[in-house]
Amino acid sequence: MDDADVPEFWRSLGLPGIADVHVHFLPERLLRRIWAYFDAAGPLVGIEWPIRYRWSDEDRVAHLRRLGVRMFTALAYPHRPGMAADLNDWTLDFARRTPGCLPSATCYAEPGAVDDVRRAVEAGARVFKVHLQVGGFPATAPELDGVWGLLAEAGVPVVVHAGHAPVGTPHTGPEPFAELMARHPRLPAIVAHLGAPDYLPFLDLAERYERLMLDTTMVFTSFFDRTLPFPAGQLGRLRDLGLAGKILLGSDFPNIPYPYADQLAGLARLDLGDDWLRAVCWHNATQLFG
């Protein structure tokens, strides 16, 4: 499958398109710094990672339209204090002028984080992104406790990079994230990359907590399969969680080193059934976000 085949993929399933909960749009200067970091295989990347879609915002939005991605996010994430409020202004404005984009926001573990998040929610943010690896802070940081409580009460999902992949830090992995969920069991969290490489404990957490979900980002592609393969013996659990609304399509577009279609082809190769594909690629996200 290549990108030109994607519309036929979702049409063959009887879907109106695709919903992708893990797409990045950021201010150009910051995005180019991120791309340069990937080019250099920086310490939190660790492997060669050539960005496939190094295009303008307009060209990337147009490509999503051609693919049939009808719902997508504009996930941004700060790497230091003092960035989150400005990023939220940018991503929320981007969503206002980009049909199909969910109003997206972020935060950093710093004093005033809960105020940043409250302002973003009041401005219409419907999904948040927290990157524990890049941010370099624990999910249980005291500055975030009010944030998690606010998002849980408001029912606003948050995509959390909580797993060790591609390079682990003291703040990533299932144990610290499990501590967060024990404190905030009603938090509607979406764990990025299925929690790779610790798939099993994150599946356990998704089964334990009603509002905890996982996204498929990069998993089941040949790029991930070489080093971080999903255990074949757990596909039954993955099927059940998907049909229960807990697995959502994510891609990491545009910061991927292969065609967008590879993500969908990898899901199709699992042979978990058309109902599962329909749920993961459309219904679960649209039911979550409306």
Score class of each variant (00 low, 15 high):
A4W: 08
P7S: 11
P7V: 00
E8K: 12
E8Y: 11
W10D: 09
W10Q: 07
W10R: 01
W10A: 03
L15I: 00
L15G: 00
P16L: 10
P16Q: 06
G17E: 03
I18S: 03
A19W: 10
V21S: 06
V21T: 09
V21K: 00
V21F: 04
H22Y: 13
H22W: 08
H22G: 08
F25Q: 01
F25G: 07
L26K: 08
P27R: 04
E28R: 15
L30T: 14
L31Y: 09
R32H: 13
R33Q: 15
I34Y: 09
I34M: 12
F38E: 13
D39S: 15
D39Y: 14
G42C: 11
G42M: 11
G42K: 06
P43C: 00
P43K: 08
V45S: 04
G46F: 12
W49Q: 05
W49L: 11
P50I: 06
P50V: 05
P50H: 14
I51C: 12
I51M: 12
W55A: 09
W55L: 15
S56C: 00
D57L: 02
E58V: 00
E58K: 11
D59Y: 09
R60D: 03
H63Q: 15
L64F: 07
R65M: 01
R65S: 03
G68T: 06
V69K: 02
R70K: 12
R70N: 05
F72T: 00
T73F: 02
A74D: 14
A74H: 13
A76Q: 01
A76Y: 01
A76F: 01
A76P: 13
Y77L: 13
P78S: 05
P78D: 01
H79M: 08
H79R: 14
P81K: 10
P81R: 10
G82I: 00
A84Y: 11
D89H: 13
D93N: 03
A95L: 05
T98D: 10
T98L: 13
G100M: 01
G100T: 00
G100L: 07
G100W: 09
G100D: 07
L102S: 02
S104D: 03
S104A: 02
A105S: 03
T106S: 13
T106N: 14
T106D: 07
C107P: 05
P111H: 00
A113V: 06
D115W: 10
D115Y: 01
D115M: 02
V117Y: 07
V117G: 07
R118I: 05
R119Y: 06
V121S: 06
E122C: 05
G124A: 15
V130W: 11
H131E: 08
H131I: 10
L132T: 15
Q133I: 12
G135E: 04
G135C: 09
G136V: 09
G136H: 07
G136I: 02
F137K: 08
F137Q: 12
